[in-house]
Each structure stands twice: as structure tokens, then as C-alpha cells.
């Protein structure tokens, strides 16, 4: 009995929050003019979200690529097609691991920072101070961070893919001794520009929008206290991760169905 009451309450509260988030997104879009008119605001945020994520993205991608190279070669060798390791590494990265892992890392590196920053600005009344100076905080603070995230995510995913493929190359060619030409040739013959590359790019763009929106929303909606901001930061990472994986399933089902 109590359980159902609790379940109902949770559902209602989640729906209300979802509605509020949608309204917030609409308001954010109407207030986005400043982010483009004064593009240096967005560039500044791209420094904090994009450039500052480069190291973690690069290092993670290198190791993911190397692990893929080792594991895939191990499996492919059993079927006598060890030469195809480049193809498998590139396909796994482009279709799934690149967009998804880059987005997960982006959520925990940049998303949490955005939430904490906006939440702290709220807690220290900086947002209200801005409002009282007749400056709309959603236009001045929130929207540039959102757009910076949207622009950074596909670029980070592309870099993740390249570094990951390079990691796979390091394992396949110098270590295992697969011929350099075969590695790249097999890859190029079997990776499709539209089907694999463009679809992967669309995924990373969708993830970028989702993570950035969650991050700025949680920050803007945070309880203006120390606990409130820390809870909001945690929620950003948790919600983003779940949403990325759910969206990934939906997008994969839409893009790679059939054949």
C-alpha cells in the first residue's frame, strides 16, 4: 500500500520535473541569441568544457583502442581473420564506443563542472544579482554553457575515435605485426561513410544536447545550499549516464536496423 503511494509520488514528481525541464529548454532556446551574438561567451565556455576535456578523452580513447585491438585480435584469430582487427576496432569505435564513452566522460568531466558552477552561482546569489542588474542569467550564464557543450561533444567524439583507432593501430601493426597496408585497407573497405561515420556523428550530437541540457538544468534548478549543489552534481552524472545509454539504444535501433 505504502509502496504504491511512494511509487505514485515518485512518478508524479519525475513527470513534473520533466515538464519543468522542457519549459526550461524552451526558455533557454529563446534566450540563446546572446550566445551567438556575443560568441566569445560561448568560446570561453568551450575552453572549459571542450579543451579541458581533451586530456581525459585522449588518454581514455588510447587505452580503449588498445584493449579493443588486443581483444578483437584474440577473437578474430580463432576464425582466421586476424587481419580484420582494424575494421572491428574502427566499427566499434565509430558506431558505439566513441560517441557513448566520450559522452559519459564528458558528463562526468564537463557536465558535473557546469552543474556545480551554475549551482554555486545560484547559492551565492550571483544569479539573482545578475537579474537585479537587468541581465538575464539564462542568456548570460546558462545558454553559452549549453551551446558550448553541444558544439564540443561531436568534436570530442571524433577525436576519441581517431585516438582510439590509433590505439588499435599500435596494437595491431607494431605489436602483433599485421601489415600496415592491410590494416588500413581492410578498415577503409568495410567502414561506410554514411552508415557508420555519419550515424556515429549524429549520436554524439544528440548525446551532447542531452548531457548539456541536463547539466545546465540541474545547476539552475539546484537547491541553493552546499548539499543542494553537491546533490545536483551527482544527479547530473547519474541522469546523464542513464540517458546516454537509453538514447544510444533508441538511436541504434533506428539507425542500424535491418540489413
Amino acid at each position: 500500500m505504502n509502496f504504491f503511494a511512494w511509487l505514485g509520488r515518485i512518478t508524479l514528481r519525475s513527470l513534473a520535473r520533466l515538464g519543468f525541464a522542457a519549459r526550461f529548454m524552451g526558455f533557454l532556446l529563446t534566450q540563446s541569441g546572446t550566445s551567438f551574438r556575443r560568441f566569445h561567451l560561448t568560446i570561453r565556455e568551450m575552453y572549459f568544457t571542450g579543451v579541458m576535456s581533451l586530456v581525459i578523452i585522449g588518454v581514455s580513447a588510447l587505452f580503449v583502442g588498445m584493449v579493443l585491438g588486443l581483444q578483437m585480435y584474440e577473437v578474430l584469430k580463432r576464425f582466421g581473420s586476424g587481419d580484420g582487427v582494424g575494421t572491428v576496432v574502427a566499427l566499434s569505435l565509430l558506431r558505439e564506443l566513441g560517441p557513448v564513452l566520450a559522452a559519459l566522460l564528458f558528463a562526468s568531466r564537463a557536465g558535473s563542472a557546469i552543474t556545480a558552477e551554475i549551482g554555486l552561482m545560484k547559492a551565492t546569489e550571483q544569479l539573482r544579482a545578475m537579474e537585479m542588474m537587468a541581465v538575464e542569467p539564462v542568456a548570460r550564464v546558462v545558454a553559452p554553457r549549453f551551446w558550448a557543450g553541444v558544439f564540443s561533444m561531436p568534436l570530442l567524439a571524433a577525436l576519441f575515435n581517431v585516438v582510439g583507432i590509433f590505439g588499435g593501430y599500435l596494437i595491431a601493426v607494431p605489436l602483433i605485426g599485421i601489415d600496415n597496408g592491410i590494416f588500413w585497407g581492410q578498415m577503409q573497405a568495410n567502414v561506410d561513410f554514411h552508415y557508420d561515420l555519419v550515424n556515429g556523428g549524429i549520436k554524439s550530437l544528440v548525446f551532447g544536447i542531452a548531457v548539456s541540457l541536463i547539466a545546465v538544468f540541474e545547476g539552475y534548478d539546484a537547491q541553493p545550499t552546499a548539499e543542494g549543489v553537491s546533490a545536483a552534481t551527482t544527479r547530473t552524472v547519474v541522469t546523464s549516464s542513464v540517458v546516454i545509454l537509453m538514447l544510444d539504444f533508441v538511436l541504434t535501433a533506428l539507425m542500424f536496423q535491418g540489413n
Binding site: E125, Q126, M132, A134
Partner: peptide, 17 residues
């Protein structure tokens, strides 16, 4: 427009950190 004619000092200053 009205707020441009008002100035407010917040409890702890609320400076942009």
C-alpha cells in the same frame, strides 16, 4: 528596464567569483 534604475547590495556581496 526598471531594474537598470535599481541597485541592490546582497547580503554577502554576491560578487562574480
Amino acid at each position: 528596464a526598471m531594474r537598470k534604475q535599481m541597485g541592490m547590495l546582497f547580503q554577502f556581496g554576491a560578487l562574480f567569483t
